[in-house]
Design a protein around this nucleic acid. Structure first.
Lengths: 257, 257
DNA sequence: AACCAGAGGTAATAAAAATTTACCACTGGC
DNA sequence: GCCAGTGGTAAATTTTTATTACCTCTGGTT
């Protein structure tokens, strides 16, 4: 719910939540990797400047989220988070930490450029049919102005391109990425929609990606994918800036009367 | 001092400091303006979800920083902060809130474009001499590779341009802005210097501004000033990103051994 | 197999921080 | 002069966190 208040309630939350947040940040940033052993509770409590009981509260929360495993008498470890695809724990972690969004886009851009290039080289007749059909579905979703269907169609379109790359590893890893996208955490189309003509532009870009893949033009396909993700990123940055300005404008309005 | 630790000490500070921070943010953002009356202590404590004694601690801190005035039996008001120029209290507030830096640059860019345009139209022989001399001083400071002198010379160069605009209001307001710059708060040249060839590029840009002003070309002077501030902003963004990456890299190194 | 250092696990007590409560003094409007 | 609403002060209570002490598990060593 959007607040119209000038002042925000202060609720820093218990100290354990601050610890949870910091450790989750370290996992998101790749500072702590799966399998890593954390310092002992006594050591870590000292480093964080919190008491051991409170640290333990935090570690229990992280364990319940699937991010840590704790062995009595042995130690505390970062849980397995990836394997062939992201574990639900890591997906949910990224969902809680919006800060990772631009890393997600940067990674996705590189992978989708790579996928588009391979797809242009390797797409089979079945792949081509899937891609064409999915482009049609995108266009219908756009015509019907249905955000939920658009989102699903968009993810499926990109999934088809990745499948056409015929790189099993890429397919698996991008399935995790698209799971994030499907959750809507990293996919707030309201930002995109607030920009004049963006829906049409996005559709044009999808058409270009499809066309260059179907034409078997690796360089053009890679460039089209890159431009698409560049546009998405720029749009999100604009959307975020606008949202922040709106928050401040509401506070000003609330302050003025 | 740069830390090599993986984990950061947790020290949220007393609840009063959190309140101070929020109210300062509102002033920086222009949500609270000088002269505004804050809600009563009882009301504000309820809105912020803190106790009245703790709110009072915060208000006393803000009063001592010159940001609020408190009248017994009457109310709490935002202190006069500007007038013809920024009061020290507001300057120091901006110094504490780095977040305002990009607002500062955006504002400065608009004002310096405006100033360059007016200067190209209005510079007197005395103004021209000051500008030429100050450009020479800039070049000498650059040759001597002296950061402190460079900073002072840079501020003085821009001051000369503003003076040549002959707009008294602009001169006063920019004097406040340059006071911020002189403090070094918004002027971390180490970011700029980390970019290959940036010193030379900055000097070239200053030369172009001077030349276009001295040639009496308002359009070119405005464009030169704009390109200069654009370059400064891009450089700072790059510097900030690098600093953040370095912090994470150090944590990773500390985590790996 | 026994021992030990160091790990996680539990709980009572103490300390610190914040909240609650009660009351006083000032101010401007009526 | 009165009153409602403001800021101002301080003691008591509650909440949160820290400290302290001790238990159990684990893997390595002898």
């Amino acid at each position: 719910m959007v607040s119209n208040a000038v002042f925000d309630r202060i609720d820093s939350g218990p100290i354990a939540d601050v610890v949870v947040r910091q450790i989750e940040d370290l996992i998101v940033q790749g500072v702590l990797l799966e399998g890593d052993r954390l310092p002992s509770e006594r050591e870590l409590a000292a480093q964080l400047n919190v008491s051991r009981p409170k640290l333990r509260d935090a570690l229990k929360t992280l364990e319940s989220r699937g991010l840590l495993t704790i062995q009595h008498g042995e130690g505390t470890f970062v849980a397995p988070l990836t394997g062939e695809a992201m574990k639900p724990a890591l997906i949910e972690l990224y969902a809680r930490h919006g800060r990772a969004f631009f890393d997600y886009l940067e990674y996705r851009r590189a992978q989708e450029c790579f996928a588009a290039r391979l797809a242009a080289e390797r797409a089979t007749p079945t792949d081509r049919t899937h891609i064409e059909r999915q482009l049609d579905a995108l266009e219908r979703a756009e015509t019907n102005d249905d955000p939920e269907t658009s989102r699903e169609a968009d993810v499926l379109f990109h999934t088809r391109i990745v499948e056409a790359s015929h790189n099993a590893m890429l397919v698996h890893m991008m399935a995790s990425i698209y799971a994030l996208t499907r959750r809507g955490v990293f996919y707030n189309r309201s930002y995109l929609r607030s920009i004049e003509g963006s829906s049409q532009k996005l559709l044009d870009q999808h058409r270009t990606i499809a066309r260059t893949v179907l034409e078997g033009d690796p360089d053009a396909a890679e460039q089209a994918a890159g431009e698409h993700l560049d546009f998405v990123e720029a749009s999100f940055r604009l959307g975020l800036a606008r949202a922040e300005f709106e928050t401040i404008a509401r506070k000003r309005a609330a302050s003025r009367g």
